[in-house]
Simulated scan of single mutants.
Amino acid sequence: MLRKAKEKKKTVLQEMFNGKGNFIQQHIITQDEMSGVGRLFADCSLDVGGVVGSHVHHGDSEVCYFISGKGRVTDDAEIIEVGPGDVNYCPDGHLHKIENIGEEPLRYLAVIFYTK
């Protein structure tokens, strides 16, 4: 299977997890195509000033690989600035929050896979 860039499903979510601004997901593969091992593999973009609010993962874990922009991640109780090449891994039962603190959209690849 080959999916051209223009064929990717796009989802625009507002104020994700009581956050702020638009959170755009361009799905690299769909949940159905993940063969039951996960629910998201997407190229994500967070507007300038945008926030994906604090949330805890239950029954799954998330990996965020930052591509461009400048962000701040709350990883449980630790707050860390992130940029291109950085990775946030949020295991099952843990909390994270992602903020765009830069002057351009914050882009990252997100993979959410089931742990149970």
Rank of each mutant, 00 (worst) to 15 (best):
G38S: 06
Y89F: 11
E15H: 12
I79G: 01
T74A: 02
G83F: 01
G59K: 02
M34I: 12
S61K: 07
S35D: 10
L109S: 00
I67G: 11
T115C: 09
I79D: 02
N88I: 08
D60N: 13
L46V: 10
N100S: 05
V87F: 10
G69V: 03
V52G: 05
E15W: 04
H96Q: 14
L109F: 02
G36C: 12
Q26W: 11
G53E: 13
G49H: 10
T11H: 15
D32E: 14
D76V: 06
V73T: 02
D32W: 02
K20T: 13
H58G: 05
I67T: 13
H96K: 11
F17W: 09
L106P: 01
I112V: 14
G19H: 05
V87P: 04
L13F: 01
H96C: 10
M1V: 08
K116M: 06
H27A: 07
D75A: 07
E81Y: 13
H58A: 12
G38K: 08
V51A: 10
T115A: 10
G69D: 03
V73C: 13
L109Q: 00
G53N: 13
K9M: 03
L95N: 12
V51T: 13
G85L: 04
I29N: 00
Y89T: 01
Q25I: 06
K4E: 07
S45T: 02
A77Q: 14
V87I: 15
V52A: 14
V52E: 10
S61H: 06
N100V: 04
A110Q: 10
P84K: 07
E78W: 00
Y108W: 15
F113G: 05
R107A: 05
H58E: 14
T115D: 09
V63C: 02
Y108L: 14
D43Y: 15
K70A: 04
I67W: 09
T74W: 04
N100C: 08
E81G: 12
V37D: 07
S45V: 01
T74Q: 09
E99L: 10
K20E: 14
G49Q: 11
Q25T: 11
V51C: 12
I79C: 10
I28W: 03
I101V: 15
P84V: 03
G71R: 00
S54R: 14
V63T: 06
V82W: 00
M34A: 13
G93L: 06
K6I: 11
K9C: 01
N100P: 09
V87S: 09
P105M: 07
G102P: 09
K6Q: 13
G50R: 08
Q26F: 12
G71E: 00
G21F: 04
Y114W: 02
E62G: 03
Y89D: 00
S35R: 11
D43M: 12
I112Q: 10
D32K: 05
E7Q: 15
E62M: 01
P84N: 04
L95P: 03
Y65T: 11
L106D: 02
E104V: 14
E104R: 08
R39C: 15
G50K: 05
V111S: 12
N22S: 14
V12F: 04
N88A: 12
K116R: 07
Q31F: 03
A42R: 14
I29E: 01
K116H: 10
D60F: 08
L109D: 01
E103F: 07
